[in-house]
């Protein structure tokens, strides 16, 4: 795929735009914590409820935290939840999808039914129950829970693609020439599924982040950690919307909106690539 990279982006504006937005956000999330004085994000570190000024660029919240510092620390955490949860759910989904597509029969039926059932239950419902039952929520725990409930999309997509790849000539040839089991999967099948795996990953990250901020908005997020969703929750909890403290909830909403728009564009762009490949083969 290497030399095709330039070609891949030319004529695929959504993919280029989406990846640029996400890339810039990631860069900001990596650098920002190093550039700010982290102690300003502690409760009572600065005067409360100040609108943006030369001293506090994004103002301060009702608990006496500098919003800019909070943003610098919360954005990486939220991106981390999305990436970790996306990675776990992708791993589970791809594994199950491959197994289902390759084994067929009873195993396939079981995995398919399980994913159908899981897709019917709204994940927020289970999340609420789990979150209400654990003693203290952390960023890592939340990523794991969210991942456990969002593997189905990847599993279904990979299963469908495995079914079609499995019957193609080169896989048949490889099988006939004695390549079997895991090696067949890893050498012949998996590389051909890469576009779909990449597309599933983007969707999984989006779903994980959506579930995460939903949980946080309900007040079931990590109470002692800073994330974008928790920042919005506290703003809503302390009536920042009614009091007109837009500088408190505005930045996290803008950051989240950018993340989701970036994910949508990337996903739309990848769809185009995946479908083009499908048509070309």
């Amino acid at each position: 795929m290497g030399p095709d990279f330039a070609k891949l982006f030319r004529g695929n504006l959504p993919l280029a735009a989406g990846l640029t937005i996400l890339g810039l956000l990631m860069l900001a999330a990596l650098l920002a914590p190093l550039l700010v004085d982290q102690s300003l994000a502690q409760v009572g570190a600065v005067p409360a409820r100040r609108p943006p000024s030369a001293l506090y660029w994004l103002g301060t919240d009702a608990q006496g935290r500098d919003v800019l510092t909070v943003m610098a620390l919360a954005t990486p955490q939220t991106l981390k939840i999305g990436l970790v949860a996306g990675l776990i759910s992708l791993t589970v989904g791809v594994t199950l999808g491959l197994i289902a597509g390759f084994m067929g029969g009873l195993i396939d039926a079981t995995i398919r039914t399980a994913s159908d059932v899981m897709m019917t239950i709204p994940s927020v419902a289970i999340l609420v129950l789990v979150a209400a039952n654990v003693r203290s929520m952390t960023v890592d725990l939340m990523a794991v829970i969210v991942a456990g409930l969002s593997w189905m999309v990847a599993a279904r997509a990979i299963r469908a693609q495995t079914l079609s790849v499995r019957e193609r000539g080169y896989v048949q040839v490889a099988r006939l020439s004695g390549l079997g089991g895991l090696r067949l999967v890893f050498i012949e099948v998996l590389p051909n599924l890469l576009p779909y795996i990449a597309a599933s990953f983007v969707i999984a990250v989006g779903q994980a982040m959506l579930a995460t901020i939903g949980l946080e908005a309900l007040g079931l997020g990590p109470q002692t950690e800073l994330t974008l969703g928790m920042t919005i929750f506290w703003a809503q909890f302390y009536g920042a919307i009614i009091r007109g403290m837009w500088w408190w909830w505005g930045p996290p909403i803008l950051a989240l909106a950018l993340i989701f728009i970036g994910l949508l564009l990337t996903s739309a762009g990848m769809d185009r690539v995946a479908n083009k490949r499908l048509g070309g083969l």
Partner: peptide, 11 residues
């Protein structure tokens, strides 16, 4: 359409 409903709601 990319943005969660409740974020639009806040605005």
């Amino acid at each position: 359409s990319a943005i969660p409903y409740f974020l639009i709601g806040v605005v």
